[in-house]
Measured scan of single mutants.
Amino acid sequence: KYSDMIVAAIQAEKNRAGSSRQSIQKYIKSHYKVGENADSQIKLSIKRLVTTGVLKQTKGVGASGSFRLA
């Protein structure tokens, strides 16, 4: 599940300011076997996790910027 992968990526990075979408994508692609549409799936999952309150956006708008666990 992409949401689990995103949470794992943010936990692994341990950046106080949060993790960027690009760094999350890079982590997921190197640690998991994902399909061609992974980028758009990650983007959608990040937006969903922010609206449900699992992630907090520290910089930027939408799916860009930095995110950390709430």
Rank of each mutant, 00 (worst) to 15 (best):
18 G>L: 04
22 Q>W: 09
58 T>N: 07
18 G>V: 04
4 D>P: 06
16 R>K: 12
56 K>S: 08
70 A>G: 06
43 K>I: 14
12 A>F: 06
13 E>M: 15
45 S>Q: 13
63 A>P: 07
63 A>C: 14
69 L>E: 03
55 L>V: 05
58 T>G: 07
62 G>E: 06
49 L>F: 02
10 I>K: 02
27 Y>Q: 00
35 G>C: 15
39 D>K: 07
57 Q>H: 11
59 K>Y: 09
33 K>A: 11
22 Q>G: 07
28 I>A: 01
5 M>H: 01
9 A>H: 02
32 Y>Q: 00
46 I>R: 00
26 K>H: 09
12 A>E: 04
46 I>A: 02
18 G>W: 06
52 T>G: 06
30 S>F: 07
37 N>M: 05
43 K>M: 14
17 A>Q: 12
53 G>N: 03
8 A>W: 06
27 Y>L: 01
32 Y>T: 04
4 D>N: 07
67 F>E: 03
36 E>M: 09
53 G>I: 04
50 V>W: 03
64 S>I: 09
56 K>H: 10
56 K>D: 05
21 R>S: 10
22 Q>P: 04
6 I>E: 01
38 A>H: 05
20 S>E: 03
37 N>F: 07
44 L>M: 11
5 M>V: 02
45 S>R: 05
30 S>G: 06
35 G>I: 04
10 I>D: 00
15 N>K: 10
40 S>V: 13
61 V>S: 12
23 S>A: 11
13 E>C: 13
42 I>N: 01
8 A>R: 07
56 K>Y: 12
31 H>K: 05
33 K>I: 11
55 L>Y: 01
17 A>S: 11
22 Q>E: 13
7 V>E: 01
3 S>H: 10
28 I>W: 15
47 K>S: 09
20 S>P: 03
40 S>P: 05
48 R>Q: 10
2 Y>D: 02
53 G>D: 01
62 G>K: 06
22 Q>V: 09
68 R>S: 11
1 K>L: 14
32 Y>L: 03
40 S>M: 14
48 R>P: 00
12 A>N: 07
4 D>G: 06
18 G>Y: 04
70 A>E: 04
43 K>S: 14
3 S>L: 09
8 A>K: 06
44 L>N: 09
48 R>N: 10
6 I>L: 01
33 K>T: 10
28 I>C: 04
54 V>F: 06
51 T>K: 14
5 M>S: 00
56 K>I: 15
32 Y>V: 00
2 Y>C: 15
25 Q>N: 08
52 T>S: 12
40 S>Q: 13
6 I>W: 02
49 L>V: 00
4 D>E: 13
5 M>N: 01
59 K>P: 07
58 T>E: 09
19 S>W: 04
66 S>I: 14
61 V>D: 12
15 N>Y: 06
7 V>M: 08
56 K>T: 13
14 K>F: 07
1 K>F: 09
31 H>C: 07
42 I>F: 04
4 D>A: 11
69 L>M: 08
38 A>T: 04
22 Q>L: 11
63 A>S: 12
58 T>W: 06
68 R>Y: 14
25 Q>C: 15
15 N>I: 04
7 V>S: 02
37 N>H: 08
51 T>D: 13
66 S>N: 12
67 F>R: 02
63 A>D: 11
2 Y>E: 01
26 K>M: 10
70 A>Q: 06
24 I>A: 01
65 G>F: 14
47 K>M: 13
33 K>Q: 11
68 R>G: 05
22 Q>H: 08
24 I>R: 01
63 A>H: 11
19 S>N: 02
41 Q>H: 09
28 I>R: 01
7 V>W: 03
53 G>P: 01
25 Q>T: 15
63 A>G: 14
41 Q>N: 07
60 G>Y: 06
32 Y>N: 02
1 K>Y: 11
49 L>K: 00
26 K>P: 00
27 Y>H: 03
61 V>Q: 11
45 S>L: 09
26 K>E: 13
25 Q>G: 08
30 S>W: 04
60 G>Q: 07
11 Q>G: 06
12 A>G: 04
6 I>Q: 00
3 S>N: 10
50 V>T: 04
52 T>I: 14
19 S>G: 03
66 S>H: 13
46 I>L: 13
53 G>H: 04
19 S>V: 11
34 V>K: 02
